[in-house]
Design a protein around this nucleic acid. Sequence first.
DNA 1: GTCTATATCGGGATAGAC
DNA 2: GTCTATCCCGATATAGAC
Lengths: 223, 223
Amino acid sequence: MEADTRSRILDAAESLFMEHGFDATTLRMITAEAHANLAAVNYHFGSKEALIEEVFRRRLTWLNEQRIAALDALEAEAQGAPLKPRQIVESFFGVAIRMAADSAGGRTFMRLLGRTYTEPSEFVRRFLAEEYAAVIARYKAAFFKALPDVPQEEFLWRFHFMMGAMSYAVSGADALRILGPIDDPDPEALYARLMSFLIGGLRAPLPEIHSKPARKPRSPRSA
Amino acid sequence: MEADTRSRILDAAESLFMEHGFDATTLRMITAEAHANLAAVNYHFGSKEALIEEVFRRRLTWLNEQRIAALDALEAEAQGAPLKPRQIVESFFGVAIRMAADSAGGRTFMRLLGRTYTEPSEFVRRFLAEEYAAVIARYKAAFFKALPDVPQEEFLWRFHFMMGAMSYAVSGADALRILGPIDDPDPEALYARLMSFLIGGLRAPLPEIHSKPARKPRSPRSA
DNA sequence: GTCTATATCGGGATAGAC
DNA sequence: GTCTATCCCGATATAGAC
């Protein structure tokens, strides 16, 4: 608990960003929680925006390195043969679920990341795209090789859907409570549940793209 | 485009909330976009918080009524027999995808809704839970009847995962662009893709809950 | 119902002592 | 590296004329 000021600020910011969002979180809240002085943020990071970037960078870099290392290991073992989809899914999302299971800030961070992924805030999304570029390229290649029968565009959407399911998975029981009372699952169970679901979705029969022109009643624009 | 002031404010707020989030969106931005006076928000809605609620209410009430009507129709036709999972999924998520396909504010609203669902902001989440209570109860019952072999807790998680996939689906190409360049799909194609994925996930083999104690390398807490 | 003007507050950032 | 004090800005909300 008594890390240096810089780390305490990052921990506090991560937690408060998750709970209140970027804008609603003030530097005053952060420094109060971190038992640091208000001016310390600008001293250590230069600006609030730079602090946000650093909150992501310190964990995301590590996370994606783990993913690439996991893929390296799988591909070395396969000796050029295509991997099983299940292996690829497990290596990509497993690393994330494991981080989310980390009792320290890992869970908080993964929830924050999932929420941020769809936020339209220009500067955060550009930053994320850069951080992800390398790992995405590797996994796309691995998936395309493993699933040659799935059109690439179809696969990209399924990957996107998987990210959505994963994001809600780590966002956890808080959100789920809208569906009704439920226990917070232990991480192993959550991992198993999510993997079944993801593999099921990934391997589902391909859709008929020219499908039904679903009835479309007019939606109201005002009360 | 020349609706009354109240509607113009709701339209502008919906769009700006989606783009910038609740806190980053100021009443000044809203009234400027709506060609209304700054004081008009407080006159028509009383406060920013009440405005936020009204933005959700005006579309969500209708959306969930459609869902219940769709389920009523299916159950009437089935005459007491369990529905097919596919029918239930299509009626719940189909209504949403159709609203998202609406060229007016529907798409904006669905994106906003998906993002808000996992936001921890107390007051919005409580509000959403109330708005959803009736429809969730109905759909839970229908699913439990249709899938008696799936444990209820397992199903709730799968429902939650489906909501996540759906949320990312409507959040659309903006977020997907992190995965690489891709066309904005036409709504029919998106609908077909998502349904395949959701059904595949919902019907996946049940996970082994006592599964592997995934290796857990330590994650870093600071740079 | 719509405007202008303003009260009140709290934000990010910085200067400069220690 | 850490503090106090402060600048400057823009936020929500309201008062009161029209």
